[in-house]
Structure formats: C-alpha cells, structure tokens
Nucleic acid binder design. Structure first.
Lengths: 162, 162
DNA sequence: GTAAATGCAAAACTTTTGCAACGTT
DNA sequence: AACGTTGCAAAAGTTTTGCATTTAC
C-alpha cells in the first residue's frame, strides 16, 4: 500500500462515516506518514507548530484517535505515562523492546508468539482483537556502557514484569 | 512464600536501603496483601480511607512505587490511563487478557511464549528484565451477549495492535 | 538527635470537553 | 444552509513535588 492509496483510503474512511476532510486533518495525516518514528501527541503537536501548521492541541488529540479507529495508526503504550503512535504504512505487525536505560525502542516479530497468543485466547473463550507485547531490558549499547562502568552505583530496583 | 515471610522480607528490604518501617507503610503493605484483585492507586487510597486508615494520597503513591521497586508488587498498565497493581504473593508470573467490553481481566501463562521472548531479546542483544503482554478481546460472556444482540449497532473502530 | 517520611496543597502532565465561531459538503 | 469541526480555555484525571512538620531509629 503506497502513500496515495492510503490517502484515498483515509478519504474513503471519512466519507463512510460522513465526516469531513478538513485542512487540519490533512495536515496531521501528512505529517504522521512523513515519519517512521514513534511519536507522542505532544511531539506531533510540536512538529506541526515548528512547521507553522497551527493545528490546535485538541484537534491533534481528536485526530489521533480518529486515525487509530480507522486503523491508520497504532498506539503503543510504553508505560511511561504517554501514548506513542506509529503509522502502519509499510509496517507489518510487530512488537516492541524498550531499553530501560536510553529509551530506545526496537521492533521484533515472532510468528510463534502470535500463534500461542491466539491459542491462549481460544482456551479462555476470548475472541482476540489485538495485543500489546513489550519487552523491557537493556540494549546492547547500554549493556556495554554499564560493563565499562563496573563498580559504579547501580539502581537497586527490580522491574515489574506483568 | 507465606505472609509472615513476605512481611519479614519487606522489613529486610527497608533495612537494606536504610529506609524506615512507618505506620503508613505497614498499613499499605497489609492492605495490598489482603486482596488478590488488581487495584489502582486511587482504589487503594479509597479502601484505606473507608477503613479509617488515613494515609495521604502522596504516601500511597510513594509506597506503591517502593513496593514495585522491591518486587512485592507488579504494575499492570491496561492502557486505560491508570496503572493497576497486583501483589506477587502466591502468584507465579502470568500475563493478562483484558475484555474490551466489560473490562474483566483474566490471567494466563504460556511457557513457550516466555521462551520465545527470551530468544527475541537475545537476538537483538537485549538483556531482558521484564515484559508486559496484554491481549485485548471480548470475553466469553460478552461475546454471548453480543451475539444475542445481533443486528444492533456496534462500534465501528478497530483496536490498536502494537 | 538526625535523617527519612508524612501530609498538604500546589503543580505537572497528558488527555478530554463545552461551546461559540468556522469551514466543508 | 446544515452540520461536522475547530480552537480556546477550562476541566478532568492521575501522579509528582516542595516544604514544614513529624516520626523512626
């Protein structure tokens, strides 16, 4: 699915719901598909303003929800109090690995995990709609850094694993 | 691990960090291990007040973090804007399934999923600390309900799957 | 006695909402 | 012209923080 196709698909989605294609929605849509990064609502709001597209904060939030409902974006809850978004264009489904030191997010995919999730849901009589899998750990780069600081204070805590 | 043991372990944890065993911390600890439910900070605050243990909201939040750091509680982010907690006493690790209709949370565990997570982390050079896996779907009860309302309006949206 | 913890109220943050004005169809 | 959408500012909701006071050790 290329950019033009997905744009049409957005227009169709709006038409279908009898909603309007406003300037702001177009601007947000554009901006969101112009990055492959994960971003928060506030970050997007910042980008738009830096680029002198003065969309209000409220509209940013409203449109993000709209895009998630339409399946154009996915939201990723990192557990740090803000929701991140990413577009689905050219991404197949994947899960995330978050570095506890530097915050880096890596993507991974394992078909077998997907299947066992299906199985677990089936066993409980759940009809599965989606899932959210995040691994927390220390990335290769930060592990190296930590090792080279051997002997330095380390945080005492264990992490929650839920 | 029984209640007394875990209480001792809490005392040891505090001593180790040169932190104090206050009345409030004891009350919160007690209350938290008196339920097997998932609860939010606000809910816990409510319980404590209903039972005339007047611990301040700030202390509730501070102590919950402390208990998570110590590995006595785990936090579960349902993506609904508030963090839920559950104690680990008598619980082995498990993941969660959340019903999108009624909010019910079911627990499940699949050793194979755990192992493939390890493998995925290894492949990326991540040293894995914890993970969070939530399945979203419609539980058996709500599916039945939905089926019996066939023909009624349904919400249009798809869910995010990240 | 001293350092840590508490309570309070204020602040910080993200996200939502009510409503008048506006823009799309 | 009608009705959905926007912007604004206020509100809501959870969580954090500064600081004077209290408490555990």
């Amino acid at each position: 699915m290329n950019k033009v196709t997905i744009q049409r698909s957005f227009e169709a989605f709006l038409k279908d719901r009898e909603q309007k294609l406003t300037l702001q929605r177009r601007q947000i849509f554009e901006r969101v598909f112009a990055t492959h990064d994960h971003f928060s609502a506030e970050k997007l709001f910042g980008w738009l303003h830096a680029e002198h597209r003065n969309v209000s904060r409220a509209t940013v939030y409203r449109t993000l929800s709209l895009l998630v409902e339409g399946g154009f974006l996915e939201s990723l809850d990192t557990g740090q109090g803000e929701l991140l978004y990413e577009h689905i264009l050219g991404h197949r489904h994947h899960d995330h690995m978050v570095c506890l030191d530097c915050g880096k997010i890596e993507e991974f995919y394992d078909q077998r995990i997907e299947e066992f999730q299906e199985e677990a849901a089936r066993k409980k009589g759940f009809s599965l709609r989606s899932h959210n899998l995040r691994l927390f750990g220390v990335c290769a780069g930060c592990t190296k850094l930590r090792d080279s600081q051997e002997g330095t204070n380390r945080p005492a805590g264990q992490e929650s694993s839920t």
